[in-house]
Amino acid sequence: MAAPAYRRPLLYRVLGNTGVTLGGLVLLAAVAMALFAPWLAPQDPYAQDLTARVLPPFWHDRADPAHLLGTDHLGRDYLSRLIYGARVSLAVGLGVILVSGTIGITLGLAAGYFGGTVDMIVSFVVTTRLSLPIVLVALAAVALAGASLSTLIAVLGLLLWDRFAVVSRAAAQSLRSRDFVKGMRAIGAGHLRILFLELLPNMRGALIVVMTLEVANAILLEAALSFLGLGVRAPMASWGLMIAEGRENILFDPWLIALPGGLLCALVLAVNLLGDGLRDLTGGKAK
């Protein structure tokens, strides 16, 4: 695809794209929620009050003004727990792409740049990884290694690198024979220098899109694992865990699962919108 002859300044292109603006704003709000949780939360998210269990949110008649969004089955303030829940989701999203991005990009770059046997081995490893049922393997690994936030991030990071590898392999393949790479070889640059200082910066557009996809993926998987009781541990406020805890009261108090689920959807949607929008901006091909 030929680049347009005239490109508007980046800021205008970003603001002109509704998806990027909307997604970015929601994501910013979530990041702010996570960073400033101790100041934003009206109450201690771990403080139990067994005399005030399952109080409804403000739109109900018997709501307590002290608990704007009600309380859970242990009398903990729901709004505070929802705010703290953003921390878990974002920590998992960020932590996982740091691990998976490092693995995937290294493998993909090596496969695309060197080709031949290296490429065959990496392709085989990717195929093997894709064959593993991801939810089940993650569940089993977390259960066996001991459930905790860091285990969860490590396990998901070790499982979600395949897209990074595929995309960076393709990019490295197409860049390998370009003149600037040949030039670098000619002036005696080492493979590592070419790979990480020349090839990597040239594929950032494609990688940013994969990054957003995987952040969304990791957040959804964390929620599913925590929902199944094998993610983060109990007193911690994770949206997936809150849905699991609210499940018993689903008949009479569906808001207990509607609220954390709604936030989860909003966050994942925002990250996806941001990714789709950035793909349009960087001129990548839509799938």
Binding site: A216, L220, A223, A224, F227, G240, I243, R247, I250, P254, I257, A258, G261, L264, C265, V268, L269, N272
Partner: peptide
């Protein structure tokens, strides 16, 4: 792609 299936199921 954004809605977690377990939550959609519960709702």
């Amino acid at each position: 792609q954004a809605v977690p299936s377990f939550w959609l199921g519960l709702m």
